[in-house]
Structures are given as C-alpha cells and as structure tokens.
Amino acid sequence: MTLDDNRLISMANQIADFFKSYPEGEAVEGIATHIQKFWDPRMRRGIFAHLNKGGAGLHPLTLKALQQLAAKQPDLAKSA
C-alpha cells in the first residue's frame, strides 16, 4: 500500500460514508474540514492531483468537498 490515488480515494470516500447521512451542505463541509484537519499536506496534494485529473472514483460528496477545499487552499491545489 502506498499513498497512491486508490488509497487516498478510498480514505476520502470512507469519510464521505460517515457524513452522507447529514444534509448535503453539512456533509460537504464535514468532509472538507476533516481532510483539512487530519491529512498531511502531501496527502491533500495527492488527492488534489487526482481531483485535477477528473476525480474518478470519488464519492459525489467527496468530490464537492475537495473542490471546496481546493478553492480554500489554491497554493496546495495548484502544486498538486
């Protein structure tokens, strides 16, 4: 196992599985906040890189959360 796309996608989607029972706005916010607070920047950079490639395999809520997070962290998202 490495910090490759599949690993990061799986981890991000697991977070969405928790938040999916909340209203969408809260869920997206919850996922984004969780990734921001608990993922090291290289992991975020990795998932942003995947997002930049279209984000295949990401749960729709994860996708929205990452887009929101990328907008808040443009430097990190750009460096991905």
Binding site: T2, L3, D4, R7, M43
Partner: peptide, 14 residues
C-alpha cells in the same frame, strides 16, 4: 498536520 503512522509507512514505500 503531519503524517500518521500508517501514512508515514505509505509515504516511505512511496
């Protein structure tokens, strides 16, 4: 935030 143990090991393999 930094890396957690499993993330450190993943990053090491990377």
């Amino acid at each position: 935030p930094g890396l957690r143990i499993p993330n450190m090991l993943d990053a090491a393999v990377d």
